[in-house]
Write a protein that binds this DNA or RNA. Structure first.
Length: 748
RNA sequence: GGAUCCAUAGCUCAGUUGGUUAGAGCGUUCGGUUUACAUCCGAAAGGUCGUAGGUUCGAGUCCUACUGGAUCCACCA
């Protein structure tokens, strides 16, 4: 008898985790006699740190897996980490900056190697945190999104899609961030409200309003609304404009996208740097004239303004417009929303670039159907609407990213056929050189270029070979990498060793995909598309979407607001079990919720409560052990009313927990165990046993009910329940048994 | 502009198909050294369920409008 008065989680958690892992409980066998139950862990960022969302995710999935494992399933929870393209590269570049370096100081393979090392150094941090959370994941099957076998599999899928005619390359108006040097998907662009000056500038016979005077060098038309009487006479005509670079002529077009009420009802059209204008340009076959380069600076078409950044150019252009009397007025109180990239919050510069695309038309229909037909169920049900709306409106998917840290697209350009490749590379003297490939080859060898290659931009009509290997010695590989979601979209397949492995055959399709609702479209929809495309089967049966854990003030956690909650502090102070249970019961139906600090405390208290129940049992059994039989049917005729009551209530609790978990109503399950154990078992029944003469009956019932309660509670609070299970070894029929692999309580 | 969700005790939230005195945790007040636990025990206070209508024998729960808040999508030259 050596239990302290209070439960000290720090003393036990690590030990217990090792006990579980060593026992092999985390590693399910392929057993034809058992039914498989599979969850693939949504891989956290390999170089990141645990945040509250991860904790909720792990708590929820561990709960499901432990429950199924105890029910006798061959339960696999497959862990892994994500290379997290952008995020990691940005983190790494911040590190480089501290060393007064930047990504431009390295060729792409050196940079890749450096990031690889950086991630490998940090990967164990997140993995250790997953361990400390008590996650019963199978570490023997641990994966990383850039593991060789994963990489091969992802590339193979791309090849197959290419052969199936689902891949194409096209010029596209992309959301380009000049600071990050890469494009962002529409979903990754955020809209921010901001006040910017609105300039009214003279434009030939017109005055028009714009916030972006610096793009005027790329204007190829002026547009008005077709019904706008003020300008009817001009439609279809050419006007002459006095510009900062001299006189030029522009066509006046009529298009409904113009809002006659905005400004003066006249709009300059810049197809190369505005989405609307680009679309309008296509309708009216306007010239597309880019004036801003990928470095975010004005190019030679901007004449004397060449080389200025966007903001510098805006300032200078406005100044000059004033000087030449071309600026009519400035509205300083104009508020509009601007597109910014979701990583750094930098302004997005819409830009035309050739990009790799996936045709989604044939993929999205079946992926939509499986949800409509209920082959894939989304919980909570009300989130399903978001899925339908997305599947209805999904457009072709741009999958290329201009970052190094990712899976390189297996496309190859031969130098013979593509002399116009735009190349940037570091030569042997570490000098950055940019130019047409054919020109560069006059001074450098192809090998030097390949060695020092940083980026390659192939024209839209480039001749390309898709191959997982270098097709010949005069080829250069595409420098773009896959969108992270392209590879993680195949995660349930590739982690299980698709298509041939025994694991794949046994564990696929998986059972539950559990994740936050914010990546329903980015990730879940893509997994369903890939799953059906490659195997004919959706990759999971149920999707459970948890809410977002917000800060204590009800707002989203963000570094800039300074309201981020570090889960580790709660974990250290109140214990992992309390933190997990607090989060699990913080929300009932997948809605967003504020971090439930008071519930964490409540469950710490609860942990202590059941701890002390165990102490009480030790004391009692120390006294009466020999006289107390294990509970069985033979005792039934000796039972008193309170015995029958507590047994009945245990049954009800088991039922309640089962049905709640089947419906993913975790809070309901948690609350019913909590109230049963505290209010019924501890406050009522246990008190009654103190006065009972027939200790052999009451203690037998108490032990039976208590142990079954521990089992029910185990998936929610795994550490303390297992600790008690071990502490009470001598009170159990099978002292060597672990709670984690014990059997789930049955209803008689 | 399109859409979704939310509004219940001081705080954070439950309340699943409309059905008896609306619940929990935390907090508050009062009282407890009963040998498992003060991270405990006992008791109490506290809600016209955002506002206004409607459907119904009956509405926190369904419908309409409004007010306030959150979020998503699209877009703003």
């Amino acid at each position: 008898m050596s239990m302290d008065k209070t439960y000290n989680h720090k003393e036990y958690e690590e030990k217990i985790y090792k006990l579980w892992e060593k026992s092999g409980a985390f590693t399910p066998k392929i057993d034809p006699k058992k039914r498989p139950f599979t969850i693939v862990l949504p891989p956290p960022n390999a170089s990141g740190k645990m945040h509250t969302g991860n904790v909720l995710m792990i708590a929820t999935e561990d709960l499901l897996v432990r429950w199924k494992r105890m029910q006798g399933y061959s339960a696999l929870w497959l862990p892994g980490t994500d290379h997290a393209g952008f995020e990691t590269q940005i983190t790494f570049e911040r590190k480089l900056k501290e060393e007064e370096k930047s990504r431009f100081d390295f060729d792409r393979q050196t940079l890749y190697k450096k990031i690889w090392d950086f991630v490998q150094e940090n990967k164990h941090l997140i993995e250790d945190q997953i361990r400390s959370m008590g996650a019963s994941v199978d570490w023997t099957r641990n994966k990383f999104t850039l593991d060789l076998d994963i990489l091969e599999s992802v590339v193979k899928t791309f090849n197959k899609m290419y052969e199936d005619g689902l891949v194409y390359r096209a010029d596209y108006m992309v959301n380009y961030c000049p600071i990050c040097g890469t494009t962002f998907a529409d979903l990754e662009v955020k809209h921010k409200e901001r006040k910017d000056p609105l300039y009214y500038i003279k434009y030939g016979p017109f005055v028009l309003a714009t916030v972006r005077p610096e793009t005027k060098f790329g204007d190829t038309a002026v547009a008005v609304h077709p019904n706008d009487k003020r300008y009817k006479g001009y439609i279809g005509k050419e006007i002459e404009v006095d510009g900062l670079l001299g006189k030029f002529k522009l066509k006046v077009i009529a298009d409904k996208f113009v809002d006659p009420k905005f400004g003066t009802g006249v709009v300059k059209v810049t197809p190369a740097h505005d989405k609307n204008d680009y679309e309008a340009g296509k309708r009216h076959t306007l010239e597309v004239k880019p004036v801003i380069g990928l470095d975010g600076r004005l190019n030679e078409k901007a004449g004397k303004y060449v080389g200025l950044t966007i903001s510098e150019a805006r300032e200078k252009v406005v100044e000059d417009l004033k000087k030449y009397g071309l600026l009519e007025k400035i509205d300083e109180n104009y508020t509009h929303t601007v597109a910014v990239c979701y990583k750094g919050g930098h302004d997005i510069e819409p830009t035309i670039l050739p990009n790799w695309f996936i045709k989604v038309e044939s993929l999205k229909k079946p992926a939509h159907d499986v949800v409509i037909k209920g082959k894939v169920k989304i919980y909570p049900k009300w989130q399903e609407v978001k899925y339908h709306r997305w599947m209805e409106s999904m457009m072709d998917w741009p999958i290329s990213r201009q970052v190094v840290w990712g899976i390189r697209i297996p496309a190859w350009y031969s130098f013979n056929e593509n002399p116009n490749l735009q190349i940037t590379f570091l030569n042997k003297d570490k000098v950055t050189i940019t130019g047409r490939l054919a020109d560069l080859l006059k001074n450098s060898s192809l090998d030097d270029i390949r060695e020092g290659l940083q980026t390659l931009i192939a024209p839209g009509d480039a001749k390309v070979v898709i191959s997982d290997k270098n097709p010949g010695k005069d080829y250069l590989q595409e420098t773009d990498t896959f969108d992270t979601w392209f590879s993680s979209g195949q995660w349930p397949l590739v982690t299980l060793g698709y298509p041939e492995s025994n694991d794949f055959k046994y564990f696929y399709p998986t059972d539950v995909l559990e994740t936050g609702w914010e990546i329903l479209r980015l990730w879940v929809s893509r997994m369903i598309m890939f799953g059906i495309y490659l195997t004919g089967k959706p990759p999971f049966k149920d999707v459970y979407l948890h809410g977002i854990v917000r800060a204590l003030d009800g707002r989203k956690m963000s570094k800039s607001l300074g309201n981020v909650i570090n889960p580790e502090e709660y974990q250290a102070e109140f214990g992992t079990d309390a933190l997990r249970m607090g989060l699990i019961s913080g929300t009932a139906n997948g809605k967003d919720f504020n971090f439930p600090a008071d519930k964490v405390i409540a469950f710490r208290n609860f942990a202590n409560k059941i701890w002390n129940m165990a102490r009480f049992m030790l004391i009692m059994f120390d006294k009466y052990k020999e006289d107390v039989p294990f509970y069985s049917a033979e005792l039934e005729n000796k039972l008193k009313k309170e015995d029958k009551d507590v047994l009945k209530e245990l049954e009800n609790t088991i039922k309640k927990v089962n049905t709640s978990l089947e419906k993913y109503r975790f809070t309901d399950a948690a609350e019913s165990i909590y109230h049963f154990m505290w209010d019924k078992l501890a406050s009522e029944y246990l008190e009654e046993t103190k006065d009972r003469e027939d200790k052999e009956v009451s203690l037998s019932v108490l032990r039976y009910v208590y142990f079954n309660s521990l089992k029910l509670l185990h998936p929610f609070m795994p550490f303390i329940t297992e600790v008690i299970w071990q502490e009470l070894k001598d009170l159990r029929k099978y002292p060597n048994q672990l709670l984690i692999t014990s059997s789930w309580p049955k209803i008689s």
